[in-house]
Design a binder for these strands. Structure first.
Ligand SMILES: [Mn+2]
Ligand SMILES: [Mn+2]
Ligand SMILES: [Mn+2]
Ligand SMILES: [Mn+2]
Lengths: 147, 147
DNA sequence: ATTAAAAGTTAGCCGATGCTAAATTGATTT
DNA sequence: AAATCAATTTAGCATCGGCTAACTTTTAAT
């Protein structure tokens, strides 16, 4: 692939895209639980109106998404009240926040500016395997050593 | 963000997610034109059955996607015949193939194995800005220098 | 030339993620 | 207490990207 054939062997290729579709299916969930956790830290609670503003979507869209998250066991909410993470939601949020920070810090360590790092990390975070994350973390750490 | 507040200023935050949604909207298109270009190189033509096998989806799904690509001016096709890229499609495919390779080679340069690099590159490629791509390219190049 | 197999198409379905417009509820002000 | 304003919910819609099942067309084998 690197320098050879244009395509990987066809027997394995579909697995790559199956993983990609899986990652996609989780992206919105991951961004929401992470955002809810951050809002609770920063503003004391997570309101639908804040989520709508942060994501740049309408309140109706937030409502739909929150219902899916509730169905999937990541949040709890009561009508007209703010939104809470379940234990599963908090666990996922912690994992996503760590991962997000590792990706962001890695992009900064590579010399990118904060705005670009923020943009790209928001997408990249959902597509880094555990192995890649380890390498990112190690790179950032070692790049801090060699001032 | 790096070490400070949990969240970026709310005035700018929505832009990050707007870009993310834009990138999403382009992912399938980008993967298809790239795959079509690669199949034409490797097999002489791009058949729906090959796309279905490569992506791990059904022929019906390929058909739907090809219709959207045709509607959007990236491919041309006639019933029961193989699929061709328009000029716009070829241009996009070339761009995507380059970008894909830069991301893949960067992950390899970081020390990741081929399988992981293949998996992660397939997702990451859609979320790297031009700036990040430049940095990736430079890193790969310099890592080749210092054997 | 028939037949069988492979490839492609069509119809109809679903879930995810977005939207607008209207209705409802809760909070604030007067 | 009423009225207003802000927040939330609901209803109804659209597109994308997936699916199965049935059908048609092309290609390959006999
Ligand atoms: Mn994200
Ligand atoms: Mn994130
Ligand atoms: Mn891809
Ligand atoms: Mn690609």
């Amino acid at each position: 692939m690197a320098g050879g054939a244009a395509l990987p062997p066809k027997e394995n290729h579909a697995e790559t895209f199956a993983r990609l579709r899986d990652a996609h299916a989780r992206e919105v969930t991951e961004d929401y639980v992470e955002m809810i956790a951050d809002l609770i830290v920063e503003e004391g609670e997570a309101r639908a109106v804040s989520l709508a503003e942060r994501f740049g979507v309408t309140p109706a869209t937030v409502n739909n998404t929150i219902k899916r998250l509730e169905r999937d066991g990541f949040v709890s909410s009561r009508p007209y009240r703010s939104i809470f993470l379940t234990d599963a939601g908090q666990t996922l949020a912690d994992k996503c926040r760590d991962r997000h920070k590792i990706v962001y810090d890695f992009l900064i360590a590579l010399g990118l500016d904060a705005q670009i790092a923020e943009f790209d990390a928001e997408g990249i975070e959902h597509h880094v395997s555990a192995e890649t994350l380890d390498v990112f973390r190690a790179f950032t750490k070692s790049s801090k050593g060699e001032i």
